[in-house]
């Protein structure tokens, strides 16, 4: 294989020498995301329920 350049060697060296960066590189603990919520009960207001009941009963009468 090709002999390495000094820079490549230095790069490799930085990989093999243990450091705090390596030791503590992957255990940072994040807080959870917050998602926005919707609910059918929010949207299905009493008013809407009323109009649905009305439309159902009127449809039944029309049959």
């Amino acid at each position: 294989s090709q002999p390495m350049t000094g820079r490549q060697a230095a790069e490799l060296q930085s990989k093999v020498v243990p450091s705090k960066q390596i030791l503590h590189s992957d255990n940072m603990e994040m807080e959870p995301e917050t998602m926005e919520t919707k609910s059918v009960t929010d949207y299905f207001s009493k008013l809407h329920m009323g109009s649905l009941v009305y439309s159902c009963t009127s449809k039944r009468k029309n049959k």
Partner: peptide, 16 residues
């Protein structure tokens, strides 16, 4: 005698 390097702790990925 690990020295404090001013890098991001997450920089080195060799062990991930």
């Amino acid at each position: 005698n690990m020295e404090l390097m001013k890098l991001t702790p997450e920089k080195v990925q060799n062990w991930n």
